[in-house]
């Protein structure tokens, strides 16, 4: 083949085809914190943010409506009721107290109240006020924000 043919039929089409290749810019790595459904400041380190998923965020909502008055030191209305109570209820972020308790125990305490579980009668039963899903959500929230952090046990999570 003559050189002219080589240029015409091979090189020019190759240039045309190769020039249409586009370089795809690398996608930014997904930041799990930025894309979490909701975030919560860690109680021990305000700079650290804990991502919350949907269920935990619903638990946060229920918690702030019903539980925050006794299980936290500051509430949306200002002062908390916690210092009025004897025995003092544990803070919701108190990992040392709650991490060793099973999910079932926690759920039953919330549902049936303190006196049914051998604890103080100050803890009311919420089983008729909150739905089982809401109670599960509150538990998920408490587990998520516990300090020291809560580690789920090896066996599959009981629902």
């Amino acid at each position: 083949m003559k050189r002219r043919d080589l240029i015409l039929f091979l090189i020019i089409p190759s240039i045309a085809i190769l020039s249409s290749c586009q370089h795809k810019p690398a996608a930014a790595p997904a930041n799990p914190l930025l894309n979490a459904y909701d975030v919560e400041q860690s109680s021990t380190d305000p700079q650290r943010l804990i991502p919350l998923n949907y269920q935990q965020a619903q638990g946060k909502r229920v918690f702030n409506n019903n539980c925050v008055w006794c299980h936290a030191d500051s509430t949306p209305a200002g002062p908390s009721n916690r210092s009025n109570l004897t025995p003092t209820p544990p803070l919701f972020t108190d990992g040392e107290t709650f991490n060793s308790l099973s999910d079932d125990l926690m759920r039953n305490t919330i549902t049936l109240g303190g006196s049914a579980m051998g604890k103080s009668a100050i803890m009311p039963p919420w089983g008729q006020t909150l739905t089982p899903d809401e109670i599960r959500a509150v538990l998920a929230y408490a587990r998520a924000v516990a300090q020291p952090p809560y580690k789920a046990s090896a066996r599959p999570a009981s629902q």
């Binding site: 008055w69 006794c70 002062p79 908390s80 009721n81 009025n84 109570l85 009668a121 100050i122 009311p124």
Partner: peptide, 19 residues
């Protein structure tokens, strides 16, 4: 006062809870 501990959340006089 005893069974249901309503005073955990309600105030009577100067004693009780703030909820």
């Amino acid at each position: 006062e005893v069974k249901y501990q309503c005073n955990a959340c309600h105030t009577i006089g100067s004693a009780g809870g703030y909820v």
